[in-house]
Write a protein that binds this DNA or RNA. Structure first.
Lengths: 144, 144
DNA sequence: TTTATTTCGGATAATCATGTCTTAAATAAG
DNA sequence: CTTATTTAAGACATGATTATCCGAAATAAA
């Protein structure tokens, strides 16, 4: 469903949001450890998220990544997914047709559009604060 | 969402079902042309589907692929997807955790399980006959 | 100012999915 | 029986994703 890059991205953002709520910056090493991901690859993903203004970064000693308080509620799962995987999950035919719409649909079109609608809605209705809260109260986990 | 292999597999099965309803066998060349897919790669996918008894095959002149009439209604989209992509779409955590369940869920668990439930239901509720019928009456299309 | 720390950016490597080619096996038709 | 046709099987090639490495740039602290 989601690429590895996207999975790491979501988990990294959730952890950064969690720490940002405590006004703490976090560096790549900590992030990778906490979400159990390859450090260098995760760094690349955060680089992209920083360029897209999903996360903020500061270089140098005591630097690291953080997300501004107000943005923790504004950033939605969909923003992260879109930032990393692009619009592939949002547009495009389930069976890979170049053109597929209600005028000239593939055999799966109607049913697929319906399912994807659910997915889109879920991604747009879920913000980082919600994800971070689950971790905070010990209800959910970022690694085994 | 689905791999290329899976997309080709679904389209190939739909076309084979359509032709089987007219008691016609079809060969790889025709299938690839009708669903606009790479011939050799599609052959590999059909090989796997034949091993898994999703489609039947006959070698030699006037040979080709077909699906027995009664099976056209029995085979569901989910059977094809499972046959090619395995259970990755059915099991496994949305964020890639090795263990993820209601006891120890990832931050997306509940919402993801819900969406995937819709997808599973759709795949299990749709059979090949339904897909082939849409093509037959000209309501849906396998290529542009 | 120097040094240590940390992200940034680009190059490179490894792995997996996608796609091709060639030969073998089966089988129908002449 | 021979030949042509068609799928089966495995080796090989290409491309995308995942992952690593190294030097540059920024910056805080000594």
């Amino acid at each position: 469903m989601f690429s590895k890059a996207c999975q790491y991205g979501i988990k990294a953002c959730t952890y950064i949001a969690l720490q940002s709520l405590q006004k703490r910056r976090v560096n790549i090493k900590d992030i990778a450890k906490e979400i159990n991901s390859p450090e260098a690859f995760t760094a690349k993903i955060l680089q992209k998220l920083a360029k897209n203004n999903i996360v903020n970064s500061v270089k140098g000693p005591s630097g690291g990544f953080f997300i501004e308080r107000e943005n923790i509620e504004k950033i939605r799962l969909g923003d992260i997914v879109f930032s990393i995987d692009g619009d592939s999950l949002y547009n495009g035919c389930g069976l890979g047709l170049a053109q597929c719409n209600s005028e000239k649909p593939c055999p799966m079109h109607d049913k697929f559009v319906h399912i994807r609608g659910h997915l889109k809605t879920m991604l747009q209705d879920t913000n980082l604060h919600e994800l971070a809260s689950g971790i905070d109260v010990g209800a959910t986990f970022l690694k085994n």
